[in-house]
Computed example of a mutant assay.
Amino acid sequence: MNEVMQRLDLVRDAAFRLIEEWRKGPSQSPIVPQGNVAGTALIIVIAIMTFLACLTFGGVSLVRDSAAAWQSQISKEATIQIRPVEGEDMEALLAQAGKIAQGFAGVTSTRVIDRAATARLLEPWLGSGLNIDELPVPRLVVVSIDEESPPDFANLRAELVRNVPGASFDDHRTWVDRLVSMARTTVLIGMSVLALVIAATVLTVIFATRGAMAGNGHIIEVLHFIGAEAKFVAREFERHFFRTAFKGALCGGGAAVLMFLLISWWSSRNLATPEADQAAALFGNFAIGRDGYIGVAIIILLVSVLTMITTRLTVITQLKEMDNRGSESI
């Protein structure tokens, strides 16, 4: 019995010395060791998660901005298509269609696609050197539209069909609706992936916190049972994990920004190639813009703060479980 009491006295004295050391200032010995293997692994994991989250956010931003640009361009124009009609002068039909369209309020201008431009449009499928007059190829009139006050498309279509043989009118509304639906679906998928990445990061932090507490359980248990408040222990852990998460998130976010800059640089250096032209048509110049960089910074801060909050809640929960086990043993 005396031996047990002596050991308890030694543990108590050691605990008091630990508390006094931790209360002295910034040179205090931390509960969670700095720079251990687990901490380095956590930095790498958080860096990877943040990198994926920033890539997802940047990709969603690119698709959203490109879709908005496509929608704006499509909404500014409509197309009149005139099929060849036997006995009719195509040039006269094109001029008549343009004149009818310009008579409607909301139409700013019309432009006839000439023979050379029509041949260039068909080159990918029919090759070069085409004679448009020898082929039953429809001709086009591009109608520029005032986005703020568009014309009455139904009346314009009816007027063209009634007065111009072989004419049809496409206001591109079907394409706009499909484009908006595609953009919304892409954004929803991207946000879902982003949420999953953040959830995986939170779970990783929970396991890392539990591991750190298990590794330093003897110190935490002594401190807690001799009167150290849960907030004191939780504060030590959340400081450590906030610094760890911020380092990892900063590395991951920086790598994502560097990748976007490299892709944008590659795109600008290869503008003349077919691959770059098609990529630019889909995603622009791969520049995520100011909003994209602000979003990356927000993700870095969000990951760090979520890590800190998750750590605090995990530590407090673990200490409560420790209290419950202690009361049950009594």
Score class of each variant (00 low, 15 high):
158 A>L: 09
159 E>W: 02
159 E>P: 09
160 L>S: 08
161 V>E: 14
162 R>P: 06
163 N>W: 00
163 N>K: 11
164 V>Q: 04
164 V>E: 03
164 V>A: 08
165 P>D: 11
166 G>C: 09
167 A>W: 02
167 A>V: 13
167 A>N: 05
169 F>E: 12
169 F>L: 06
170 D>P: 12
170 D>G: 08
172 H>V: 04
173 R>L: 15
175 W>F: 11
175 W>T: 03
175 W>K: 05
178 R>I: 00
178 R>V: 00
178 R>Y: 10
178 R>A: 13
179 L>K: 00
183 A>E: 12
185 T>F: 15
185 T>K: 15
190 G>T: 05
191 M>L: 11
192 S>C: 08
193 V>T: 07
193 V>P: 12
193 V>D: 09
194 L>Y: 11
197 V>T: 07
198 I>A: 14
200 A>H: 03
202 V>E: 09
203 L>H: 03
203 L>C: 03
203 L>M: 04
204 T>W: 04
205 V>H: 02
208 A>C: 06
208 A>N: 04
209 T>E: 08
209 T>A: 03
210 R>K: 12
210 R>A: 01
211 G>E: 01
211 G>C: 02
213 M>H: 04
213 M>I: 01
216 N>P: 05
219 I>Q: 08
219 I>G: 03
219 I>C: 00
219 I>L: 13
220 I>R: 04
220 I>G: 00
221 E>L: 07
221 E>Y: 01
223 L>P: 05
223 L>C: 09
224 H>P: 04
225 F>W: 07
225 F>L: 01
227 G>V: 04
228 A>D: 05
229 E>C: 00
229 E>N: 12
230 A>V: 06
230 A>S: 14
232 F>W: 14
236 E>K: 10
237 F>A: 03
240 H>A: 13
242 F>H: 05
244 T>L: 06
244 T>K: 01
246 F>T: 13
246 F>C: 08
247 K>G: 12
253 G>E: 07
253 G>V: 02
255 A>C: 07
258 L>C: 12
259 M>Y: 13
260 F>R: 11
261 L>P: 00
262 L>Q: 09
263 I>R: 02
263 I>E: 02
263 I>L: 03
264 S>T: 14
265 W>Q: 11
265 W>A: 15
265 W>D: 06
267 S>A: 11
267 S>D: 12
268 S>D: 13
268 S>V: 13
